[in-house]
Design a protein around this nucleic acid. Structure first.
Length: 491
RNA sequence: CGGGGUGUAGCGUAGUCCGGUUAUCGCGCCAGUUUUGGGAACUGGAGGUCGCAGGUUCGAAUCCUGCCACCCCGACCA
């Protein structure tokens, strides 16, 4: 175990906080609720961005950028949307500071510079985007519009945790406009699938695809689709959402188009997003009591090479061999780092890279070279083996794939073990304490979900898209239900 | 916004009840020597408005008053 590092079992949330800081991912900033994402953490985010952005382009989307500030009046136009976000908005009221009027040291807003209309720092961009789209759309020929933006947003949260919930966070938000309801729904589903594919194939994190219950739906959406993952403490984490917005925003912002039949109709909308919260998901899905564990596809450094030598002559030989292996790996598209620093001992480096979650470590020692071998250690299961240098780069390429697969398999079996059917309320109250996902019948009413939340702190994470039709009775009310939904405590 | 807690070096802390030399210890940092196959050892060194502002006192990290910040627990949430 890493030195002075709390275990998951001892205190899961402390383990998480410590890990984020000690692995160099992020730290708290001077501003309450806001974090500094450090270079190592940001490098992971950049890999996430790159992979997703490629997929967005692949599915026909283009990036654009909309303003950080939203006029308050825009915000007021969609009733449910206001209702959902008003409580957590940062507001800009002035555009100038002046020395304090009482003569004391410091600055205060200049009353002369009060804004005519106050500006909201975007908590999400639907309103300004739909106000803009109105000008872009006249006929069906202007549709669909498939835009995405990478941006920061602000939601003034009461309680924050690094990556999982911060007052400011980074994300992407896709906003699309369509001529028909069917096409918009298809887009919503398509992007949900992109998210699910990314989560499973890049993050090695299995996710459930489903829709949200009315209580958990995005403010202003007709339907919210989501991917839900299970963390190692058994809690659920919403990792991405895709919303079918119907014509709500088109109506609020008067966005109409002339159809082929020459009829004026409201445009159909979707929006979808994932945020730096994915970083939290990634951390909590795979990491262990020795620190971070990263899937090879998102690790900034996939392979680290550590030299061991005593004499100057040995050092040169080891360096030489390391350069060759490094070149081979680079040619195979592997990101590799050679840590030849002399101020740290090899043992220290082993622990350091282990804590940072580097998937594969190659140790090249003077003794190894005499036998033409190197030591390969994998982070996911902490095993080591000694392999011939001959053909080592191909072996490592293969090993990285194995690690990626193993992480997914491990996470999947963890989730499966933590998922069970529950049919009575008594059993529910006992089982929910143990964590994990509970598959239960629900009568479909917000009142029942609300009551269950109040009594157990569990919510409906999603109504799985692939839920089987099955006659049953609601776990709480006993009323008839046609399928099981997923209950869990959530982040 | 309620309830609880904490502010002493980059980090973690002792000292605070009961005021009194130069504010303790560990990690980290700097220099040097020996080391290097799982977090090296020794020697020397640098680093402090004791959260802020007042007050009591010959004397305040310590006592009093006010303020500020942060953390934890609840209500809200991607």
């Amino acid at each position: 175990m890493a030195k002075d590092f709390v275990t998951r079992k001892e205190n899961y949330s402390e383990w998480y906080n410590e890990l984020v800081v000690r692995a160099g991912l992020a730290e708290n900033s001077a501003v309450r609720g806001c974090m500094v994402i450090k270079p190592y953490g940001y490098a992971i985010w950049e890999k996430i961005q790159r992979a997703l952005d490629d997929m967005f382009k692949e599915t026909g989307h283009q990036n654009a950028y909309f303003p950080l500030f939203i006029p308050k009046s825009y915000f007021e136009k969609e009733a449910e949307h206001v209702e959902g976000f008003a409580k957590e908005c940062a507001i800009v009221t002035h555009h100038r500071l002046k020395p304090k009027s009482d003569g004391s040291i410091g600055l205060e807003p200049d009353p002369e510079a009060k804004l005519e209309e106050e500006l909201i720092v975007r908590p999400t961009s639907e309103t300004i985007i739909w106000d803009t789209y109105r000008g872009w759309i006249q006929s069906y020929r202007d549709l669909p519009i498939l835009c995405n933006q990478w941006a920061n947003v602000v939601r003034w949260e009461m309680r924050t945790r690094m990556f999982l919930r911060t007052a400011e966070f980074l994300w992407q938000e896709g906003h699309t406009a369509h001529a028909t309801k069917e096409e918009a729904i298809e887009e919503t589903a398509k992007m949900l699938n992109v998210y699910a594919f990314f989560a499973e194939n890049f993050m090695a994190m299995p996710v459930l695809k489903g829709t949200k219950s009315p209580n958990e739906r995005f403010a202003g959406a007709l339907d919210t689709y989501c991917i839900e993952a299970m963390m190692q403490d058994g809690k659920a984490l919403q990792a991405g959402t895709s919303h079918f917005l119907g014509q709500n925003f088109a109506k609020a912002f008067d966005v109409k188009f002339l159809s082929k039949e020459n009829k004026l109709e409201y445009v159909w909308a979707t929006s979808w997003g994932v945020s730096t919260r994915l970083m939290g998901a990634l951390i909590m899905c795979h990491s262990d009591d020795n620190g971070l564990v990263l899937p090879p596809k998102l690790a900034p450094t996939q392979v680290v090479i550590i030299p061991i030598y005593k004499t100057q002559e040995q050092k040169e030989k080891v360096n030489q061999e390391a350069q060759i292996i490094m070149q081979e790996l680079k040619q195979s598209g592997i990101s590799v780092q050679y840590d030849a620093r002399e101020e740290y001992k090899p043992g220290w480096k082993f622990n350091e890279y282990e804590f940072k979650g580097v998937p594969v470590r190659v140790t090249i020692g003077a003794r190894d070279l005499e036998q033409g071998v190197v030591e390969i250690a994998r982070r996911d299961n902490l095993t080591k083996e000694t392999l011939p240098i001959e053909g080592i780069s191909q072996k490592i390429v293969k090993l990285l794939d194995d690690i990626q697969d193993n992480l997914f398999t491990k996470a999947l079996s963890f989730r499966e073990m933590g998922t069970r059917k529950v049919d009575t309320w008594e059993e529910f109250l006992v089982e929910i304490e143990k964590g994990g996902f509970l598959l239960c019948h629900w009568d479909g009413t917000p009142e029942t979900e609300e009551k269950i939340k109040e009594l157990s702190k569990a919510t409906i994470r999603c109504i799985p898209l692939d839920a089987l039709e099955e006659e049953g009775r609601c776990i709480f009310s006993g009323k008839p239900s046609a399928k099981r939904v997923v209950f869990a405590r959530a982040y």
